[in-house]
Simulated assay, not measured.
Amino acid sequence: MRVPNIKKFFLLLVMSYLSVNSLQFSLEKTLLSVKDIGKAAAKNIKNLLPTPKDIIEESKKLLIRYPLEFVSNTINEICIAALFSETIVPKFTPDINLLQFQLCTACNKYNYPLLNAEDMCRSPEFDSKKKVVIFATGWATKVNDSKAINALAKAYNCRGDVNFVAFDTANFVDTLYTWSALNTDEIGLNLAKGLVKLSNIVPVENIHLIGHSLGAHIVGAAGRYFQQLSGKQIPRITGLDPAKPCFNEGASLSGLMRGDADFIDIIHSSPGILGKREPMGDIDFYAGGLDPLPKGCLSVMCGHERAWRYFAESVYPGNEENFMGKRCTSMKRLRGGKCPGDNVPMGFAVSHNAKGNYFLEINDKEPFGKNGDKTHMNLQRECGLCTN
Rank of each mutant, 00 (worst) to 15 (best):
L31W: 14
M301S: 07
A153I: 01
S128Y: 10
V196K: 10
G38F: 04
A153H: 02
Y112M: 11
P235M: 03
L209M: 12
K295T: 05
N248L: 10
N150P: 03
D168R: 00
A148T: 03
K197Q: 13
F92S: 09
F323D: 07
L11A: 05
L115S: 02
N371M: 12
G223L: 00
K130T: 08
T141M: 09
S19T: 08
T87F: 05
E278D: 13
V202H: 01
W308F: 15
A136H: 02
V165M: 07
A136Y: 00
T93H: 11
S26P: 02
K142Q: 15
C297D: 09
C158L: 05
L62F: 07
G341H: 10
N21V: 11
S59H: 07
G211D: 01
T375S: 15
D265G: 08
G372E: 05
L49P: 02
E305M: 05
A106H: 05
L274T: 07
D241N: 08
S252F: 15
E28M: 12
P94N: 03
I64F: 14
S254W: 00
F10Q: 00
H217Q: 06
M280C: 09
K295F: 13
Q100M: 12
N47P: 00
L32P: 12
S213G: 08
R381F: 11
V300K: 12
H217F: 00
S22T: 15
H352V: 15
G325T: 02
Q24S: 13
G194M: 04
H217S: 05
P271Y: 04
F311S: 10
Q227L: 06
V14I: 08
S270V: 03
A216S: 06
V20W: 12
N357K: 14
Y310L: 13
I80A: 02
L98H: 14
E305A: 08
R306L: 03
C246K: 01
V133A: 04
L214N: 05
V3C: 09
R381E: 13
V204M: 12
R306F: 03
E320A: 10
N171Y: 07
I283S: 03
N144T: 11
F164T: 01
L152P: 00
I96V: 13
I267A: 07
F285E: 09
K35Q: 15
T184E: 06
N371D: 11
E28P: 08
L98W: 13
V20R: 14
K147S: 14
N163P: 07
A170G: 06
M15F: 07
G356L: 11
C246F: 05
N171Q: 04
D262M: 08
D95Y: 13
E382L: 14
D342T: 10
G303A: 13
M257G: 13
I96E: 12
A117P: 06
Q100Y: 11
A106D: 10
D36L: 03
S16D: 08
F135I: 01
L115E: 00
E125M: 11
P124D: 09
A192W: 04
N171T: 10
P271G: 01
C121T: 13
N150C: 06
G337L: 10
F285K: 14
Y17N: 15
